[in-house]
Design a protein around this nucleic acid. Structure first.
Length: 689
DNA sequence: GCAAGGTC
């Protein structure tokens, strides 16, 4: 008797084999894919790990020419499955040939079920007789895995069908609209323009914020603060109670009439406890990494590496509650062996009781991200250590005591004899009095304010008033970490894909920088879609799909019916787009055109634009008044050029930013003769191509 | 050359 167990990834296969064989499994290679083998009496078991999906959906070959096929033809085209993991499929089929039993042990979720069904169908091609079973567990612990293998279930075909509906709909909508918009704007080849169920609403979020900023009218206002001295301690600044003076004269009048004598009219000290943070799931981790300057896709890549090294747990999780089964003491004991963090871990371990914090999202997918091993700082790259340390410190903090803060608010009245009235000031500040968890996890920790002991009726002396001129600020742009949180809130993408969706917006040239700024191209594409194909720019399409997938999983709807309804909806949208084809192409081309304007010519005032020379194929910046005005500047020949709407502080020539995958973004003044280029560290402009 | 979802 022989059986094969199929898991979603190699790590899981290894673990399942170890649990079921009590550590006696041996590793063999089948087409270079690891297979874990063990024997129980007459029964031989092989365990093989896949690499996620082994098939992908695509259209048949005859649809592959973008110019030769009308986008609308894709909507009713067949959708076929093509192998993407050939050696794994070969190994799977080789090992499954002749077995009596196949056990699908992929992750317990929709995509996991689909991955399992795809594997099952590949096995059926070579072995139609084997009995197929499903092992369901939500954590790779000994008890869960053993329990699952003592109580097999059946494959949940409906759930897999729900996953297939998603695959089909994503491909049909994505490919049809991607091709339509690329053809309409003549952006073919590697500069094609993409559209998708998740990426387009995400881009729309960024663009909507940018439009708010552009529409924002900046208003000047004034604030008054003053430096006070007392007989007890250091001097301090207090703020006038009127937050914003919209009239400069009014503020000036107060400033010039302020007296010296002040008295404290009220002094309140309050103490409050600050709870330690919740355990890390992917979103919280990426937001934290983002706040220390690591982009989500970079932080994710590092986390995956640390996971493969056995230093941290699985980094793709929704869960923010440690499961009962997680051995918190064991992890602390491991961490205690760390040169850099051992002392901190020891302190937590010495607590009488370990009570971890809990986050709002309780899921059973995986435990929240936590350290699983120790490593010496110097053996990792600095950025890897930064991520490891953050995960380890977060873990410690979730077990650490409350912090407590002391806040102070003081109100001060200042006499203004010449105005015959008093002006009110206040001072607010807080400081940490008990460090608690902040000792372990101090990221983003605010500096302590000075908290004085001044009491009601104490006298203070106004030393110097200060009038500050300020401007109202438009709403802030999204940082990458914030955008991931927003996507999660709106149900866009998954823990495993959000970072790559955002990265895709960068790679397509739709956005640049962090905080995220949409390019003119990004604005053009997003606005065109919003006006002419709104459905693809809102999160509701995903919400509707989730709903339909639940119905399929429950057996209340058929996959084909859901996909066909979706096809009909897309047809309506595409017909509308085609009817407005001219406007659509104009709007995107306008975006592309605007994206090429880098500023105004200093000689004639006309536009300076990025131009590609017909003769040399090289690009440069030239004046729109050519040949009357011959102003021109060289450009580097790699990367994308992004107009910054800024001019050089020294020579007033426009500045641009060069972004590429290979190098760090690089801001440069277009003028090669600019005096700033003479300084040593900034002389890379000339001739760099 | 298309999407989004797994995983490396």
């Amino acid at each position: 008797m022989a059986r094969i167990i199929v898991s979603e990834k190699d790590n899981a296969a290894k673990r399942i084999a170890a649990i079921l064989s009590n550590g006696k499994a041996t590793t063999i290679k089948s087409y270079n894919v690891p297979v874990y083998v063990f024997q129980n009496g007459e029964e031989k078991t092989s365990v093989i790990g896949l690499k996620g999906h082994i098939l992908k959906v695509d259209f048949p070959e005859k649809y592959s020419n973008w110019q030769g096929v009308k986008p609308i033809e894709l909507i009713d085209a067949d959708v076929v499955k093509v192998p993407t993991q050939k050696s794994i499929i070969k190994a799977l089929q080789k090992e499954a040939k002749g077995v009596e039993q196949v056990i699908i042990a992929t992750d317990f979720d929709r995509e996991g079920e689909l991955i399992g069904v795809d594997a099952m169908n590949k096995i059926k091609e070579v072995n139609s007789k084997a009995k197929i079973k499903r092992a369901r567990f939500s954590a790779l612990t000994e008890s869960e895995v053993k329990e699952a293998f003592n109580n097999f279930e059946d494959i949940y075909v409906n759930l897999a069908n729900a996953g297939e509906a998603r695959q089909d709909i994503d491909l049909i909508w994505g490919a049809t609209l991607t091709r339509f918009i690329s053809l309409a704007s003549k952006r073919l080849g590697k500069h094609f323009l993409s559209v998708g169920r998740v990426q387009s609403p995400t881009l729309a979020i960024v663009v909507a914020r940018e439009k708010e900023r552009r529409a924002f009218i900046v208003k000047p206002y004034w604030q008054i603060k003053a430096l006070f001295s007392t007989d007890q301690k250091e001097d301090f600044f207090a703020q006038h109670k009127t937050d914003k003076f919209w009239n400069e004269e009014e503020a000036k009048e107060i400033v010039s009439n302020l007296g010296k004598a002040g008295v404290i009219t009220d002094s309140k000290k309050t103490k409050k406890q600050i709870s330690p943070p919740a355990p890390f799931n992917t979103t919280a981790f990426l937001a934290a990494a983002s706040s220390v300057g690591l982009s989500p896709s970079y932080a994710m890549r590092i986390a995956e590496g640390l996971y493969m090294e056995g230093l941290i747990s699985y980094p793709r999780v929704d869960n923010t509650v440690y499961p009962e089964s997680l051995d918190l003491k064991g992890i602390l004991t491991i961490l205690k062996g760390s040169k850099e963090l051992g002392d901190l871990a020891g302190e937590i371990l010495a607590q009488k009781k370990l009570t971890p914090t809990r986050g709002k999202k309780k899921a059973t997918d995986h435990p929240p991200i936590h350290p699983t091993g120790v490593v010496v700082k110097d053996s990792l790259k600095p950025q890897e250590w930064k991520v490891y340390e953050m995960v380890a410190r977060r873990f410690l903090a979730t077990l650490a005591p409350f912090a407590s803060m002391e806040s102070l608010r003081i109100d001060i009245d200042v006499e203004c004899p010449s105005l015959k009235r008093k002006e009110s000031f206040f001072l607010q500040g807080s400081r940490v009095v008990e460090e608690g968890w902040l000792k372990y996890y101090g990221y983003g920790r605010k500096k302590d304010d000075v908290v004085t002991n001044l009491k009601k009726d104490d006298n203070v002396l106004l030393i110097k008033p200060i009038l500050e001129s300020k401007e109202t600020q438009p709403p802030q742009r999204y940082g990458q970490g914030r955008l991931i949180q927003e996507m999660e809130k709106l149900g866009l993408g998954t823990k495993s894909t959000r970072h790559s969706i955002i990265q895709n917006l960068y790679d397509r040239g739709y956005v640049h920088s962090d905080p995220i700024v949409p390019t003119e191209l990004g604005v053009g594409v997003s606005e065109t879609l919003r006006k002419n194909a709104e459905a693809i720019t809102t999160p509701e399409l995903t919400a509707q799909l989730e709903n339909d997938m639940d119905l399929i999983a429950e057996g209340k709807e058929k996959k084909d019916s859901v996909v066909n309804i979706s096809r009909e909806m897309l047809k309506g949208i595409l017909e509308n787009l085609e009817k407005r084809g001219e406007e659509v192409s104009q709007e995107i081309k306008e975006g592309i055109r605007e994206g090429k304007i880098v500023g105004k010519c200093l000689k004639c005032g006309n536009e300076l634009r990025i131009i590609r020379s017909r003769k040399t194929k090289k690009r440069f910046v030239g004046c729109a008044s050519y040949p009357d005005c011959k102003t021109a500047f060289p450009l580097p020949q790699f990367g994308d050029v992004i107009a910054l709407d800024e001019v050089c502080e020294v020579c007033k020539t426009p500045k641009v930013k060069i972004v590429s995958n290979r190098k760090k973004p690089w801001v440069l003044c277009l003028n090669p003769a600019c005096p700033t280029k003479k300084t040593s560290d900034n002389n890379k402009t000339d001739g760099r191509e």
